[in-house]
Nucleic acid binder design. Structure first.
Lengths: 190, 190
DNA sequence: TCAATTAACATACGGAGCGTATGTGAAAGG
DNA sequence: CCTTTCACATACGCTCCGTATGTTAATTGA
């Protein structure tokens, strides 16, 4: 039943980290909410950052699955890529993802380039881009560089959208601008 | 001489926050390094976050000045805009800016949309974009949405470049990809 | 000129929180 | 049946933040 213990701790941590944030989350309160004490925590995760890393891994895995599903549902690679970008833009508006993945994560665990799973997420994008470059759909650009630019743009834009006075209008404006920028990547301008 | 006291505290804090980070910076060590005690700190800045905000204001003001200078040096608005994007990309590679402005800042002070001066930085970009749209250089897109996308893209790409095995090659790849994306914003594809 | 107020700090204190060291009970293994 | 190990709980010390309380010097006002 150690898996259940770990899962309940991660669940409680995810709730706390996603709402009040990493710094304000007390390990005593966290473990008490899971019906345990800090002893269990340090036994399974080493320290507070270890638990936080476990939460990040879980969320990142979920995001990868969701993005993969969106991409697989599309007709061709290019629209699949565009759709997953839009899906990421939408996901990055969720408060839990914003708080844990975009804000506290990098500050606590250091740059996301140490995180194995976020790299998966980007690697998936870069692979799709690589194919598009090989097929001649995209101009011959470095796939990872493009993926990083798009990743950052969507992340930041999503936070802007979430805080905008009119989120729906902001989402439309961001999507339009994003589409325009993506067009610049195409080999032949549509 | 209260300005000197404030300045020395901010300088010490900037050094500490920029190297070991906000969470690991002890206020006792900080103030001792400035030849003071925590009493001075809480008198002038209220709390730890207040001092951090003062540091962020200072750095953000410096960044705005630097970007404005780059933009003013250009021949036409469009190249001025492109140059300041490139300058921001270069600035975001500086460890102090990465740590304080990009990583710890949002986590500690909340989303940057509450920060007055970072908004200045973006507003400057948005104003330049607005002019370009009016002049017909750019497609009719929402300037702030474009500014947000570019801001996020450069931020993220800069961190990628800083951590890449070959930063120079990564910078070139990112610049190429970035130029391509910017081309998508133009009304008439070059 | 001198008392009184305020500003600019230093000092002292309480409380919260993290990490570790230690204890305990149950399960597994010989 | 004994022992070892695992999965926790308990207890402790340490650091650090924020506040409350001095203390000194400058300024004000009569």
């Amino acid at each position: 039943m150690i898996a259940a213990t770990r899962a309940s701790l991660i669940a409680a941590a995810r709730e706390a980290f996603g709402t009040i944030g990493y710094a304000a989350a007390s390990m005593d309160d966290l473990t008490a909410a899971a019906g345990l004490t800090r002893g269990a925590l340090y036994h399974h995760f080493g320290d507070k950052k270890g638990l936080f890393a476990a939460v990040i891994d879980q969320i990142d895995a979920e995001m990868t699955i969701r993005l993969r599903a969106v991409s697989a549902r599309a007709a061709d690679p290019w629209t699949g890529f565009r759709d997953s970008c839009a899906a990421y833009l939408a996901m990055a508006r969720e408060p839990e993802i914003q708080r844990i993945m975009l804000r506290d994560g990098p500050a606590v665990l250091g740059d996301p380039w140490g995180w194995p799973l976020q790299n998966d997420c980007i690697r998936m994008m870069a692979q799709g881009l690589n194919e598009l470059v090989r097929e001649g759909v995209l101009a011959p650009l470095d796939p990872e560089a493009v993926a990083r630019l798009i990743f950052g743009a969507t992340q930041h834009a999503a936070q802007w959208i979430a805080h905008a006075p009119d989120p729906e209008a902001a989402l439309r404006a961001a999507t339009d601008a994003f589409d325009a920028m993506l067009k610049g990547l195409l080999r032949k301008p549509a």
